[in-house]
Simulated assay, not measured.
Amino acid sequence: MTKLEQLLSQYAAYHLDHKNIITHFIGIPLIVFSLICLTARAGAVVSGFEVTLAMVILTASVIYYLSLDKIFGLIMLAVYVLAYPLAYIVAQWSMAAWLSASIGIFIVGWIFQFVGHFYEKKKPAFMDDVIGLAIGPLFVLAEMVFMLGFRKDIEQRMLEEARKQRAMMDQKVKEPVNV
Rank of each mutant, 00 (worst) to 15 (best):
Val51Gln: 01
Thr2Asp: 15
Glu50Phe: 08
Ile63Ala: 15
Phe114Arg: 02
Asp153Ala: 14
Lys121Asp: 14
Leu16Ile: 10
His18Phe: 08
Ile131Asp: 10
Glu175Asn: 14
Met55Asp: 13
Leu53Gln: 04
Val90Arg: 03
Val32Lys: 03
Cys37Asp: 00
Ala60His: 07
Pro137Ser: 06
Leu68Pro: 05
Pro176Phe: 09
Phe139Lys: 01
Lys19Phe: 13
Val51Phe: 04
Leu141Asn: 10
Ala42Cys: 07
Gln113Asn: 11
Thr59Lys: 05
Pro176Gly: 09
Ile71His: 04
Leu141Ile: 01
Ile63Met: 11
Ser94Phe: 08
Lys70Trp: 08
Leu66Asn: 02
Ala12His: 07
Ala101Phe: 14
Glu143Asn: 11
Thr39Leu: 12
Met169Gly: 08
Arg41Lys: 14
Ala87Gly: 13
Ile107Gly: 07
Leu159Glu: 15
Leu7Met: 12
Tyr80Pro: 00
Ser47Ala: 15
Ala83Asp: 13
Ile26Pro: 01
Ile57Phe: 10
Leu133Ala: 04
Ala44Met: 06
Ile36Tyr: 02
His18Trp: 12
Leu8Glu: 02
Val56Cys: 09
Asp170Pro: 02
Phe150Lys: 11
Ala91Glu: 01
Met127Gln: 11
Arg163Pro: 03
Lys164Gln: 13
Lys19Thr: 12
Lys164Arg: 14
Met127Asp: 10
